[in-house]
Amino acid sequence: WVPTKREEKYGVAFYNYDARGADELSLQIGDTVHILETYEGWYRGYTLRKKSKKGIFPASYIHLKE
C-alpha cells in the first residue's frame, strides 16, 4: 500500500459496491470517500458519512475530485 500523494484526496462513488470481506468498504452511489492509500487498482479509506469504518474498495468505482 502506498500513501496518497496529496494530503486531502477525495472521490465520489459512481457505482454501488458491496463489501465481500471484513477488510472491504461498502459504497453507495454518491458517497464521498477520503482516500488514504492506493494499491494495484484499489483504494483504502473511509466514507464521510461513516468515518469510523475504514476499508478497501475498487478504484474503478470512484471519480476523483480535483
Rank of each mutant, 00 (worst) to 15 (best):
R44V: 07
G55E: 01
P58A: 04
K65W: 15
I62M: 00
K53V: 12
E7F: 13
T47H: 12
A19F: 01
A22Y: 08
K53F: 08
I56P: 02
R20K: 13
D18M: 12
K51E: 09
I56R: 08
P58Q: 04
G45W: 07
Q28M: 11
P3I: 04
Y46A: 04
Y61L: 14
G30S: 02
A22L: 09
K53N: 09
A59M: 09
V33K: 00
S26R: 04
N16F: 07
E8D: 10
V12P: 00
Y61R: 05
Y39T: 11
R20C: 10
P3D: 08
V2Y: 11
F57T: 01
D23C: 13
G55Q: 02
G30Q: 01
Q28T: 11
I62S: 01
P58Y: 05
T32E: 15
I62Y: 01
D18I: 13
A19V: 01
R6N: 12
L64M: 06
D23V: 06
A13I: 04
R49E: 12
Y46E: 04
G55K: 03
E8G: 11
V2A: 10
T47R: 15
A22K: 12
E7V: 11
A59I: 09
S60P: 05
K50H: 14
E66N: 13
I56G: 01
K53I: 12
Y39E: 03
F57N: 01
H34R: 15
G45T: 03
Q28Y: 07
V2G: 08
I35S: 01
S60R: 14
V12D: 02
P58N: 02
E7N: 14
A19D: 02
Y15C: 15
Y46L: 03
G45P: 01
S60T: 09
A22R: 08
F14S: 08
I56V: 10
K9Q: 13
N16K: 12
W1V: 07
G11D: 02
Y17E: 00
E40C: 12
K54A: 09
G45R: 03
V12K: 06
I35K: 00
R49C: 15
H34G: 07
G41N: 07
Y10S: 04
T38S: 14
D31Y: 04
E24I: 04
V33T: 00
G55Y: 02
G11N: 01
V12Q: 04
Q28C: 13
S60F: 07
H34S: 05
K9E: 08
L25H: 02
K5Y: 08
A13T: 03
D18F: 11
N16Q: 11
G30L: 02
Y61Q: 05
T38H: 10
L36K: 03
V12H: 05
G41T: 06
E37M: 08
H34W: 14
K9L: 13
D31N: 03
A13E: 03
